[in-house]
C-alpha cells in the first residue's frame, strides 16, 4: 500500500529556490519578489514551478501562476502557509 509523505510546502519552495539559484536560504524573505532574486530569470522560475508542481502533485492554473510575485505567493499557490523561513511541519490528513 502506497504511503503519502506530507511535504512541508514552505520548506520545499525554499529548497527549490536554493537548488536552482544557488543562493543562501537566509536571503529568502517571504515578501521577496521572485523576479528580483539573484540569478533569477524566466526560465529558471518555470523550472522551479515545474519541480514544485511535481513534488506536490498539482498543476496550477494560469491565473494562479500569473498572480505569483513573491516567495510567499508561491507557497500559498501550492497550498502552503508562509512561515518565517523555518521548517515547521505541515499537518493534515
Amino acid at each position: 500500500m502506497a504511503m503519502t509523505v506530507p511535504v512541508d510546502v514552505a520548506a520545499s519552495v525554499r529548497d527549490a529556490l536554493v537548488a536552482e539559484l544557488g543562493i543562501d536560504a537566509t536571503a529568502l524573505a517571504g515578501e521577496a519578489e521572485l523576479s528580483l532574486l539573484p540569478g533569477m530569470e524566466s526560465v529558471k522560475l518555470l523550472r522551479i514551478v515545474s519541480a514544485l508542481e511535481e513534488v506536490h502533485g498539482v498543476s496550477l492554473d494560469d491565473d494562479v501562476l500569473f498572480s505569483i510575485e513573491t516567495v510567499d505567493d508561491l507557497i500559498r499557490a501550492l497550498g502552503g502557509a508562509p512561515d518565517a523561513g523555518g521548517t515547521t511541519g505541515e499537518t493534515g490528513p
Binding site: V7, S12, L52, E54, V55
Partner: peptide, 11 residues
C-alpha cells in the same frame, strides 16, 4: 539533486 524536503531542483 534534492533538498532536505525531497524537492528536486528540476522535474
Amino acid at each position: 539533486m534534492t533538498g532536505p524536503t525531497g524537492a528536486p531542483a528540476t522535474a
